[in-house]
Design a protein around this nucleic acid. Structure first.
Lengths: 124, 124
DNA sequence: AGGTTTCTAAACCAGTTGGTTACTAACGGA
DNA sequence: TCCGTTAGTAACCAACTGGTTTAGAAACCT
């Protein structure tokens, strides 16, 4: 079998948007980003509100960095993190493609039944 | 120690937004949602474009369902999934709280330096 | 009743995630 | 030069993830 047959490929082909969404899927990291709206901060500053060890904070920051949500500088021995909100623009843009469905009543069974036969001419 | 001491708590306290972001962090699932914009669809219809087995599709749908992005009905032996885009409104809202930083030049070192003296006594 | 279609459940597997502890590196100050 | 602060590496661990195969439930069609 040329097909890989490997049980798990998992997150192999992680595109950019997936990285961003995955980074945002953790409340700790979202809180960190919110914190960074008030300006750049050092690792210890960022980790202060959370009950976790230094390396854990460091790892979270690396996830944010790899998603492009944070850029890191170097000032003395501190390595300040700066918010880079550009990827969030893409997140918002993606979500807003669904805007027309946001407040849709989902009891439109008739609509469902009309769409059911799935054939292209059902629309025209 | 009453604290669990367990090495991994991980995704224990998954709040709603985290569930939604996690669900969107997979390109397959995003494609499924995009598909559902054209109207409800059965599991086999949804899984057709993807090279994966039935159960895999089923699992993806369950993730979407638990995130509140999809509601499932029952019609005959098919169990059609309907898009529920309401959580995306929250996603967009969250992302847009960062709107003022989207196009920000991040070479504002002066701003950084102004925010730096974060310690309380530096203010008073 | 028997068969087909549609979908899910269970068990399993490998890779990722989120945390820990212990150690190391780099810088600034006395 | 030595010390404290700041941050990152390495190794480890348990839970979660995304996929598989195998089997089974539920509804339709003769």
């Amino acid at each position: 079998m040329s097909t890989v047959t490997l049980g798990a490929n998992a997150a192999a082909a992680r595109d950019r948007l997936s990285l961003v969404f995955a980074a945002l899927a953790d409340p700790t990291r979202r809180a960190m980003l919110t914190r960074l709206r008030r300006g750049p901060a050092t690792v210890t500053e960022i980790g202060q509100p959370f009950d976790m060890t230094g390396p854990a904070v460091s790892k979270h920051l690396r996830v944010l960095e790899r998603a492009g949500l944070v850029t890191r500088g170097r000032a003395a021995q501190s390595r300040p993190a700066t918010l880079n909100a550009e990827p969030m623009k893409q997140v918002a843009a993606w979500a807003e493609e669904f805007q027309e469905f946001w407040d849709q009543r989902y009891d439109r069974l008739d609509d469902y039944l009309r769409t059911m036969p799935d054939d292209p001419k059902a629309h025209a």
